[in-house]
Design a protein around this nucleic acid. Structure first.
Length: 299
DNA sequence: AATCTGATCAACCGCTCTGGT
DNA sequence: GACCAGAGCGGTTGATCAGAT
């Protein structure tokens, strides 16, 4: 027995919204608000639409503060940076970009931004270790495969010159990295992340007494021995970039944003069902602008 | 001019999460 | 704690358009 449908699919209209429908929905919400109940809204408003469809239409198109049009370089940088940090959490990214919707960002990433980056990866390539090679040997409590995290998917390959920090051509032309350097500091400063906290796991746990919360949690609080094991795994793999991954996850005092070009590049290349920092990624980003939303969402 | 192909993006689908009972 | 309904999310689809052939 399957889940009951959210609405009577036989009696709801699907497909593109007409200007009349837009007008009805907009007028209704302006007058009465959503009432906290999207399911009943279309009936009350006299629309033959599914409540979810109304919600989507309002949030992605009709909302008064929606920004349409091209993304700026600054927005590109924010998206790239956040993708490297939190993966495909589009709603959180949207909270960082006023006027942009998660759908917009998702589309933009999938159709343009990813290609901008990947388009620069076309020649000599070398194989990097996949992230799965790391997490396959981790205790299962470190990750949970039930929820995808597109940021850490199986790696295919990465262009060698991209991996070479001396590649100024790439840095100079890539909208995500057109600051003067690609150091983590410049990336961190390129977008308004104030509270550097990322919690990976079932529950956020803050172990620090001052509330700085720089520690990562994979399903449970990471103990010192866990950290040693994890670092040992990375070290035994013999790969020079291992430490960067650790830093990118904010482990052991590294900020969650301590990633570099290689990391973003690698994240794009990961594409499959392997997971690292998945399942209830807890991300606290900009307390002034988005904490309310993020907290609402996660807590 | 007609057809093909790839890009774009609005919308849908199915799932998980959350809050109420 | 179990169950349920609704909200919200991310992945995917499909219609449309623009450029290439």
């Amino acid at each position: 027995m399957g889940r009951a449908p959210c609405c009577d699919k036989a009696n709801v209209k699907k497909g593109p919204w007409s200007p009349e429908e837009d007008s009805i929905l907009k007028d209704y919400i302006h007058k009465y608000g959503t009432g906290g109940n999207w399911i009943s809204l279309p009936h009350k408003a006299g629309l033959k639409r599914c409540g979810k469809s109304c919600r989507l239409r309002w949030l992605n198109y009709l909302r008064p503060d929606i920004k349409h049009g091209d993304f700026t370089d600054e927005e590109d940088r924010v998206i790239c940076s956040l993708f490297a940090t939190i993966g495909s959490r589009w709603s959180i990214m949207a909270a960082q970009l006023p006027g942009r919707t998660d759908n917009d960002i998702k589309n933009y990433w999938n159709t343009k931004l990813k290609k901008k980056l990947m388009g620069l990866s076309s020649q000599s390539q070398r194989k990097l270790p996949t992230f799965s090679s790391y997490h396959q040997t981790l205790p299962t409590s470190y990750y949970n495969p039930t929820r995808s995290f597109a940021g850490f998917d199986p790696l295919s390959s990465v262009q060698s010159e991209i991996l070479n920090n001396n590649n100024n051509a790439f840095l100079g032309t890539n909208p995500c990295f057109n600051h003067t350097t690609s150091t983590p500091e410049s990336l961190v400063s390129s977008y308004p992340v104030k509270e550097k906290l990322i919690m990976f796991g079932s529950e956020p746990s803050c172990s620090s007494s001052d509330g700085s919360c720089s520690q990562i949690s994979y399903g449970r609080e990471m103990k010192q021995e866990d950290m040693s094991n994890f670092q040992g795994l990375c070290a035994s793999d013999g790969y020079e970039d291992n430490h960067k991954f650790m830093l990118s996850c904010g482990v052991n005092g590294g900020t969650p944003l301590d990633y570099d070009l290689e990391d973003v590049k690698r994240l794009i290349n990961y594409n499959g069902d392997n997971n690292c920092c998945n399942n209830n990624n807890h991300v606290l980003i900009d307390e002034n602008k988005t904490q309310e939303k993020v907290m609402d969402y996660y807590y």
